[in-house]
Design a binder for these strands. Structure first.
Lengths: 192, 192
DNA sequence: CTAATTTGCCTAAATGCTTTAGGCAAATGC
DNA sequence: GCATTTGCCTAAAGCATTTAGGCAAATTAG
């Protein structure tokens, strides 16, 4: 009986890789066991359930993405920061579609509150300090940016923008230009 | 042996309702059989697999949502049309979270091409005719709007905006104001 | 109005994922 | 060296998926 050296950490990391390969919702404890060449029951010492595994992968992805976004943000401000930050999201989604899907998993409120999700929100807000927005507009803008990053990545992964001109990269660049322009010129009052 | 009168249509519709109740990824052929008070195998005459069921629910949701959006659009133009259309999406997501999640299912290209997804794209483009956008900016704008509607609904369903001020409705309204302003003033050249 | 056919739901069974209980051996600590 | 903890095991139950084959009800045809 050779010990493989399983830890929750390693299991989750392997789960993230599996998600990128086969899709987040195809991630299964059984498949993971196969990859470690270990019996299924053994993994249940490290995760409590299949759901637990998925939640941990989601938290892992949120952390990893937050780290990347923080790196991208370092030393930048204004439109530069916006673009670098946005690209961190899009690139992550393209490189790691499974993990990105995991990061979109619905978490229960307490779990979400303790997750790296709050770092994401803080960073988005930091970017907006480069624009002239006061509350509550800043919050509206945070939500808009979250929706766009989230939504674009999701649609792009689903293949929504492939096989049609103009290519996705061009749309992305122009959308970021547009968002920058919008943030610099955020409408103050509803145009009724 | 009493016949329940199953049809693919009825099975898919019940699947959509089940999705709204328990979440799209919790939809299972077995649970559906229980609800029809029928043996599981019986459902396999109407759908070929669990995956087939989910795809059909997704297509159903896309149709239903397209119908609603078309109704919302009728007789409107400009910002009015934008808001009505956007609200159709958001309302659908709030009333039918499971179906909305289904509508975000990744479809293979041929299935997607034959789905109501193309109606969605056409309607979005129709709205943009109320603004002064030429290609390729119109396509960029279609993708932006798709990302926002998609992303906002998804984040809202995940609870991202609850329990924090300002409330989601206010953000939504202001985001639509902002998008309208952006479309009226779409930046033509990249501001380098 | 039967008889033939089709259709709708069934039983049975194989396969695979999830999860729990209990056990043995390897690693660790005294 | 011995006790304890830890890591992986076997075993087994439960549930979802899927296929094969059968019988009875509904439909159609003569």
């Amino acid at each position: 009986m050779v010990r493989v050296g399983l830890t929750t950490e390693r299991v989750v990391r392997a789960g993230a890789e599996l998600a990128d390969e086969v899709g987040f919702d195809q991630v299964t404890v059984s498949e993971l066991a196969r990859r470690f060449d270990v019996k299924v029951a053994s993994l249940y010492s490290h995760v409590t359930s299949s759901q637990d595994l998925k939640t941990r992968i989601a938290l892992f992805a949120l952390e990893e993405l937050a780290d990347r976004a923080a790196d991208a943000l370092a030393g930048r401000a204004g439109k530069d920061a916006l673009i670098a930050f946005a690209n961190a999201y899009r690139d992550y989604g393209r490189e790691h579609p499974g993990r990105a899907a995991a990061a979109r998993l619905r978490l229960d409120p307490e779990t979400a509150a303790a997750s790296a999700g709050v770092r994401h929100a803080r960073m988005t807000r930091a970017i907006l300090r480069g624009y002239d927005l006061t509350e509550p507009d800043q919050t509206h803008a945070v939500r808009l940016l979250g929706s766009v990053f989230h939504g674009y990545s999701s649609l792009e992964t689903a293949g929504g923008f492939s096989h049609s001109a103009p290519d996705s990269q061009e749309s992305w660049t122009r959308i970021l230009d547009a968002l920058d322009a919008l943030l610099r010129n955020w409408p103050t009052a509803p145009t009724l």
